[in-house]
């Protein structure tokens, strides 16, 4: 009994220390996504939590959240508040069209052994920098593996008619290309998206979509799909609501010194009733 408990604790500890294994879900949730009228505001919650969208774990790091206005220019959120479990902020919609609210990062992640002990860089919650990487990761370390990673988290809100300018790819990391506009999602209509990894189709990317309100039902009811040979996925929604939408991709086409390339993409998408 004791042995089993100890084992499972050790395993849990190991899992928690591994890059992106058992990582918590993180999200930026808009209160609404399609708006009419003039000079409107949207309020957002952002947090790290596995319960969708219940903020009960930690507020994450969202002070650097970015916004692109419909004309493509950067703009900023207002009234940023950090609470115990979530961030709350507002966005003033001064232009007609689609705004993108997002965070994006990329870099290298290294794992190795030193005197039989497991080491890694960057540490949990630490941001990547190439300088630090060069300083801290020994080139000839025991069992060294270097992963090229990209993480992107997005959500979209539209005042008036949806526009395309903020949906353009940067061709860096794992990105979503809208075939169906992310603010044109309806419960009875299939949605199509394309995934790119560094600008090329992310063939085989694994996508999961989970409708909000998991605490009010007994199953996650996730929709799981895999990107086809063009990086395209088609989703049939489980009814109206806001969805946690996550894509993961991994291959061996990394640039040296990395040997593994990995991308994660998260969006919160609102699906309206027909």
């Amino acid at each position: 009994m004791k042995v089993t408990l100890l084992k499972s604790l050790l395993l849990a500890g190991l899992a928690a220390s591994c890059f992106n294994v058992n990582a918590h879900r993180a999200w930026i949730v808009p209160q609404e996504t399609q708006l009419s009228g003039e000079n409107r505001w949207v309020s957002f919650d952002a947090a790290v939590s596995n319960d969708i969208f219940l903020s009960n774990y930690n507020p994450g790091r969202f002070s650097g959240v970015k916004v692109h206005a419909p004309d493509g220019t950067p703009t900023e959120v207002e009234n940023m508040h950090k609470g115990k479990y979530r961030h709350v902020f507002d966005l003033a919609l001064t232009q007609e069209g689609t705004y993108k609210v997002f965070t994006a990062s990329n870099g290298l992640f290294a794992r190795w052994y030193e005197d039989g002990k497991r080491k890694w860089y960057p540490g949990r919650g630490e941001a990547f920098s190439m300088e630090e990487f060069k300083k801290r990761v020994p080139k000839d370390a025991d069992k060294l593996t270097v992963t090229q990673f990209s993480r992107r988290m997005e959500t979209f809100v539209t005042l008036g008619a949806p526009t395309e300018k903020t949906l353009q790819a940067t061709n860096k990391g794992l990105e979503l290309i809208a075939i169906t506009h992310p603010n044109e999602l309806y419960a009875g209509e299939a949605a199509k998206f394309k995934f790119l990894i560094d600008g090329k189709p992310a063939v085989g990317a694994e996508v999961v979509a989970i409708r909000e309100g998991t605490r009010y039902r007994n199953a996650q009811q996730e929709i799981s799909v895999k990107a086809d040979e063009n990086g395209v996925v088609t989703l049939n929604w489980n009814g109206a609501g806001r969805y946690f939408f996550e894509a993961e991709y991994q291959d061996n086409k990394a640039s040296a010194p990395a040997t593994v390339r990995r991308g994660t993409y998260v969006a919160v998408l609102e699906v309206l009733p027909d």
């Binding site: 399609q34 708006l35 009419s36 009228g37 003039e38 000079n39 409107r40």
Partner: peptide
């Protein structure tokens, strides 16, 4: 201020 347009959507 055309606030009635808020609910058109």
């Amino acid at each position: 201020n055309n606030e009635g347009e808020k609910w058109l959507k």
